[in-house]
C-alpha cells in the first residue's frame, strides 16, 4: 500500500500539545457529564469568571483575512485547466500566424463576400501587429473567450464542492460572502488575464512578423499606431465588460450546482441560445434586451470618430445582467445548505 505501514500514525511527542486554555480555566475532564438536556447548571456555576475576549475567535483569526486573494490565486494557478486555458491564449496567435504563413499568402479575392466588417478584418490581419492582434480577438470573441470566461467563473465554486473541500473552507470559517467575493475576483482576474494574454501575444508576434503599422480598417481611415493601441485597449475593455455576462451566469450556475462542467456548459449554452435568438430579426425589440445583442459593438471603436453609443448600451446591458446574476449567486449561496 503506502509507507503508512512502516510509519504508523504517530503519537505526538510528550508535551507536544500545549494546553488549550490556562490551567485554572480548564475544568477537570469528565467532571460534568454530557447531559442530554444540554443545560448543565453545574458547569455554569463552576465556570471561572474570566471575561471572554470580544470575539473569542481563534488567535490570529480575522474573517477579513481568511482565504486571502493570493491563496485563491495559488489554488487556481495549480490547476491544470487554468494552465491549459492560459497557455492556449498564448498559443492561439502563434497558430494563426503559422496558418497565415503556410496558408497560401492570404489572397482575399476568392472569398470576397460582399465586404462586411468582418471580412475586412480578415483581409487586414497581416497588415501589422495591431491588426493581427485585433484579428485574434475578433475570431475569439464569439466563442473561445466565452468558453474561457465561463470556465474560470463557472468552475470555481462547483469544483470545490465536487472535491468536498468547500465545506472545509466554510468551516474555517471563511464567511460565505467573502468566499464568493474572493472566488469571483480571482476568476475575473484570470479571465481578464486570458484576454490580455491573447491580445498581448497577438500584438507581440504580429508586430515581430508584420511590423508596427497603423491599425487599418477598410471603411474608416487608418488609425496611427499610438492611437491604435488605445483603441485596442478599448476593445479589450469592452470585451471584458460584455463577457461579464458569461462570467455572471457561469458563476450563478456554479453556486447552484456541484457539477463544474454543468456550470461551464450551461453558461456557454445559454450564451449561444441568446446569440441564436439575436439572429431572429422577427423578435424585434426583444433582441435589444438579449445579453449578446451588443456583443459586436466593439467594432464601433474601429471607425473614426469612434461610434460609442452601442458600447455604452452594451456595457449597461452587461453590467445589469452581471449584477443580477451575481446578486442571485450571493443571495443563494449565503442561504443554502451545503450538502456536498
Amino acid at each position: 500500500m503506502t509507507a503508512s505501514h512502516t510509519n504508523p500514525p504517530g503519537v505526538p511527542p510528550a508535551g507536544g500539545l500545549p494546553p488549550a486554555v490556562p490551567s485554572d480555566a480548564a475544568p477537570a475532564a469528565g467532571r460534568s457529564g454530557a447531559g442530554s438536556d444540554g443545560r448543565d447548571a453545574t458547569s455554569a456555576a463552576e465556570r471561572p469568571g474570566a471575561a471572554p475576549r470580544r470575539t473569542d475567535a481563534a488567535a490570529g483569526y480575522r474573517p477579513s483575512r481568511t482565504l486571502p486573494i493570493v491563496a485563491e490565486i495559488r489554488r487556481q494557478a495549480s490547476r491544470r485547466r487554468t494552465q491549459l486555458a492560459l497557455g492556449f491564449m498564448v498559443l492561439l496567435p502563434l497558430i494563426i500566424l503559422v496558418a497565415f504563413e503556410f496558408g497560401g499568402g492570404g489572397d482575399s479575392d476568392d472569398d470576397r463576400n460582399g465586404g462586411g466588417a468582418f471580412s475586412s478584418l480578415v483581409d487586414l490581419a497581416t497588415s501589422g501587429g495591431l491588426n493581427f492582434a485585433l484579428f485574434g480577438l475578433a475570431v475569439s470573441a464569439g466563442f473561445l473567450l466565452v468558453v474561457v470566461f465561463a470556465l474560470f467563473a463557472g468552475d470555481t465554486v462547483a469544483s470545490e464542492a465536487s472535491w468536498g473541500s468547500l465545506r472545509y473552507l466554510l468551516a474555517i470559517p471563511v464567511p460565505r460572502a467573502r468566499l464568493l467575493a474572493v472566488k469571483l475576483v480571482v476568476a475575473l482576474g484570470y479571465s481578464f488575464l486570458a484576454l490580455v494574454l491573447l491580445a498581448g501575444t497577438g500584438l507581440l508576434v504580429g508586430t515581430l512578423r508584420y511590423g508596427w503599422h497603423p491599425l487599418g480598417s477598410t471603411i474608416a481611415a487608418q488609425i496611427p499606431p499610438g492611437q491604435g493601441v488605445l483603441r485596442l485597449l478599448g476593445i479589450l475593455a469592452y470585451l471584458a465588460v460584455i463577457l461579464l455576462v458569461v462570467a455572471g451566469l457561469a458563476f450563478l450556475l456554479s453556486v447552484l450546482t456541484d457539477a463544474a462542467l454543468g456550470a461551464v456548459g450551461g453558461a456557454v449554452l445559454l450564451w449561444i441560445l441568446s446569440s441564436i435568438l439575436d439572429q431572429i430579426t422577427a423578435l424585434g425589440s426583444i433582441r435589444d434586451a438579449l445579453p449578446t445583442h451588443y456583443s459586436d459593438a466593439w467594432l464601433g471603436l474601429l471607425s473614426t470618430p469612434v461610434q460609442t453609443e452601442d458600447l455604452a448600451k452594451g456595457a449597461i446591458s452587461a453590467i445589469v445582467y452581471a449584477v443580477l446574476f451575481w446578486g442571485a449567486a450571493f443571495y443563494r449561496f449565503t442561504r443554502k445548505d451545503i450538502t456536498s
Binding site: G116, F118, I219, L299, G300, L302, S303, T304, P305, Q307
Partner: peptide, 13 residues
C-alpha cells in the same frame, strides 16, 4: 458623412 461601419447591423454609421 460616413464615419465607419456599425458594429450592430454591419452597415454604415
Amino acid at each position: 458623412r460616413v464615419a465607419g461601419f456599425s458594429a450592430m447591423d454591419r452597415d454604415l454609421v
